[in-house]
Simulated assay, not measured.
Amino acid sequence: MALGTNSIANAFCAAKDQIARDFNRLAKSVDGQFRTPLLAVTNELVAQDRLIAKNFVGAPSHFKPHASADAWRSGPRRWWFFDAIDNFRDVGGLMTHDGRSVRYGVLFRSGTPQCATDEDVVRLLARGIGKILDLRSEREAKTPGNWPGESVTITLSGNPDRVNALHKDKANVPRRDLPSIYRSMPAHSGDALVAALREMLDTDGATLAHCLNGRDRTAFFIAVPLDAIGVKRSAIMDDYLMSDFRTGTCEDLGRKPVRPPEREAMQAMFDALDEYGGAAEYLRAHGFTDSELAAMSDRLLTR
């Protein structure tokens, strides 16, 4: 049976992903002058993956950079490999309803950088990052010891154990029920989110937001403001669904598998926001002003 174009694209992307993983493992096993060129090759493979996937509707979901043809705007690469930072990507390129897009080089997301090597810090600085927003608890938070920029810890209630403790009928909420967790985030994290957004606005450089794996709490921090300034939910959803891409580089976290993101979870968060009248109204209800919304739009969106 002849392979269709999409099947070929799937196979090609999957093969390139495996090659990229192999190069990444090889880079971590060598020292000195060979590490940097190996990581450079890996990064270039990732950049090519993005370009390939943009042109094939049937590309694997974790490569596919848009939910529909007009949900994503091509531009600079979004993904980089680090020695010990997972899920690092630029939020740039997501399309708005009025035809604009999120600017590249302004807002980044990742898993924890607590294991960052000296080379990783250099790579972060090369991205223009001036402030790191750590969305974990004070107990969890560990800033890279050699990070020269500003780091702020603002706890969001996205940790499954903490969120489940907030449910009145705890017995009826499965411990790892992601949709229930995501639906409860807006009710318990509004003030913290507004504080984090104000920190983002109060920096001259780019911002990196992260939690532990770069999935749940980071998803809330990214999704709400983008929704509020008119980014398409299909694009926000698609970016979220890439949050299990290439994990497991921070040795501090061990090698336990990370549960992949769930479309139903993000949709549950959107549904909860709609009960406030939308993301913008949700932020206003927690003290975020119209002038701050305008400033956030100016900062994050192309003109």
Rank of each mutant, 00 (worst) to 15 (best):
I132A: 03
L133S: 09
E140A: 05
L156H: 02
L178Y: 15
D120C: 08
K170P: 05
A141M: 04
R183E: 11
D120F: 07
M185K: 06
I132R: 03
G158E: 00
D120G: 05
S137E: 07
T143L: 14
R123L: 11
W147A: 09
N172T: 15
G128K: 08
V152E: 13
L124S: 09
A141L: 00
R127S: 11
V121A: 02
T153Y: 00
R123Y: 03
L133R: 11
P148E: 07
N164G: 09
I181L: 14
L124N: 06
V152W: 07
P148N: 06
P179L: 14
L166D: 02
K142C: 05
L135N: 13
N164C: 13
K131E: 08
L124C: 07
V163P: 03
H167I: 05
A141E: 01
E150F: 05
P179Y: 15
L125I: 13
N159V: 02
G158V: 00
N164R: 15
A141N: 01
S180W: 03
V122N: 10
L166N: 01
L156E: 04
D161K: 13
T155N: 13
N146V: 06
P148H: 04
D161S: 13
N159S: 04
V122C: 11
S184R: 12
A126W: 06
N146K: 10
A187P: 01
A187M: 05
S151M: 13
D177H: 14
H167R: 04
T155A: 12
S157F: 07
H167T: 01
E150S: 13
A141S: 14
D134E: 00
L133P: 12
T143E: 10
R139F: 02
D134K: 00
A141Y: 01
R123W: 07
S151C: 15
G158C: 00
N164T: 10
A171T: 07
D120I: 04
K131S: 12
S151V: 10
T153F: 00
P186E: 01
S184E: 05
V173K: 12
D169V: 15
Y182H: 13
P144W: 08
G130L: 01
R176T: 11
A171R: 10
A126G: 14
R175S: 14
S180A: 14
T143I: 15
I181S: 07
N146Y: 03
A126F: 04
P148V: 06
Y182A: 13
G130M: 04
L166T: 03
Y182L: 12
L135A: 13
V152M: 09
